[in-house]
Design a protein around this nucleic acid. Sequence first.
RNA 1: AAAGCAGUGUGUUCUGUCGCCAUAAUUUAAUUUUAUGGAGGAAAGUCGGGGCAAUAAAAGGCGCCAUACUUCCUAACGGGAAGGUUUCGCAACCGGCGAAAACAGCAAGUGCCACAGAAAACAACCGCCUAAGUCAUCGUUGCAUGACCGGUAAGGGUGAAAACGUAGAGUAAGAGCCUACGAUAUGGUUUGGUAACAAACCAUAUGGGUAAACCUUAUGGAUUGAAAGACCAAAUAUACCCGGAGAUCUUUAUGAUCGGAAGCUGCCCGCUUUAUUCCGGGGGGGUAGGUCGUUUAAGACCGGAGGUGACUCCGGCCUAAGAUAAAUGACAGAAACCUGAGCAUUAAUCAGGAACAGAACCCCGCUUAUAGCACUGUACGGUAC
RNA 2: CGGGGCGUAGCGCAGUCCGGCUAGCGCACCUGGUUUGGGACCAGGGGGUCGAAGGUUCGAAUCCUUUCGCCCCGA
Length: 127
Amino acid sequence: MQNFAKNERLCSKSVIDQLFTQGHSFFKHPLKIKWLQGQWDSNNSVKVVISVSKHRFKKAVDRNKIKRLIRESFRLNKFVLENGLKGQKVYLAIIYTSNEMPDFATLNRVINDVFHRLNLDYEKLSG
RNA sequence: AAAGCAGUGUGUUCUGUCGCCAUAAUUUAAUUUUAUGGAGGAAAGUCGGGGCAAUAAAAGGCGCCAUACUUCCUAACGGGAAGGUUUCGCAACCGGCGAAAACAGCAAGUGCCACAGAAAACAACCGCCUAAGUCAUCGUUGCAUGACCGGUAAGGGUGAAAACGUAGAGUAAGAGCCUACGAUAUGGUUUGGUAACAAACCAUAUGGGUAAACCUUAUGGAUUGAAAGACCAAAUAUACCCGGAGAUCUUUAUGAUCGGAAGCUGCCCGCUUUAUUCCGGGGGGGUAGGUCGUUUAAGACCGGAGGUGACUCCGGCCUAAGAUAAAUGACAGAAACCUGAGCAUUAAUCAGGAACAGAACCCCGCUUAUAGCACUGUACGGUAC
RNA sequence: CGGGGCGUAGCGCAGUCCGGCUAGCGCACCUGGUUUGGGACCAGGGGGUCGAAGGUUCGAAUCCUUUCGCCCCGA
């Protein structure tokens, strides 16, 4: 299913603090990724938070646009990550760090690469 | 005729696939499925005003802040409408039209006005005048000369600004001191107007600018903002309250027996307590989190009536985003619009473009940003040269 | 959402309340002197539309209005 429901979003402030202080991170232009293994009740395998800096994009319209594009490509590529994780659960933060507006095609490709990379890192870490 | 500039209005529609948020129905172990709805004229800036909420508070005064032609509209406003005055534009003049105005008061008081200039506000530095008064002088006894006491704003290369303007009369010299014409201000009367104000007449005056200087007058203003505020409430710790604490027996109970610590006593018995420890229960405040506040309102649309207008009244009809690390999207296609190529021109065709910008308690305004398109103004008439 | 502050020379700051004074100070920069040469020192010099636009005034960095950018605070 290529949907994106409410329980796949990370909303708790304390968990976000934990993710940003203790999480593993890597960088793939124009995205910065932070991730951390987690535990929760519902049976989805990822909780994600998407962030665009107010410093880089002053207009709310542009920030909303970028967040919507990232969310859309996350939704379409989520199956890659779910296959790699094999039932484990992960908190994820996606931070946009460029100064230019992205277009959907390149962003989609980057997200796909990022998820493959994330799967490799996860396997390496867990053995 | 029209570019540009300024203002006002408008702010593209439809189809398919996959998704997001809310509500309703349906169905479950979680949930699923279906239907309906889902950004703006500025949602922006947060500059005014109000609702709403909490706190404070007799009335009133002082202080502080804001506003300032008039009448009206509005819940209210620093907003709006109509009107007046002044200035500006068409424009040389008149009418007319349009635009702008922080347009109360400096003739209530105080302060300031650099440089220059005699002087920047109770004006005698130079200049002009010695008629009157006092004193002195003398070949001249005067309509003399000199000094003192004075008079005088007509003239003076300045300056942003110089003490009503021009002409006459008058005088020793002069002066609105007086006269004529003109200008301005204040007060009064009459007429028109709800009023600001306008016109006419009379009287008085001639007082430089500055209140986006202090200030005066009039009017208004309590403070803090939905992160306000109300309610529910896990985990952990816990004020306070209640019950209990080890061992043995059995009839399993509000049971019996033995025992520990402390106090009363010198000691035993007996009585009382048992906390600062631990266990169980209650319990208040309250964190994470959640619910309400929160979208039915100074509401939209249609029709009628009143008013120059802002706007008001009456009737009908409708309910229209509601998220909370924050939904309203992505991809593909079509139509209309604009630009370029194409063509003598139009059409077909091809390529490209489509602004400013995203609700966060809710309204009314203001301000600022806006591609393309539409409309209005700039862009009237007469007279004179 | 609400509140407060700052934009002046390449850099860091005065001056703004209460309008006129050459828009000033330190570092940096340039020229000359000093030294065998450099630094330090001495003397002299250049560089500013006071964030932007409009207004008030004879006159605005300063007063008023609008606007742009930056920073801080309240949970």
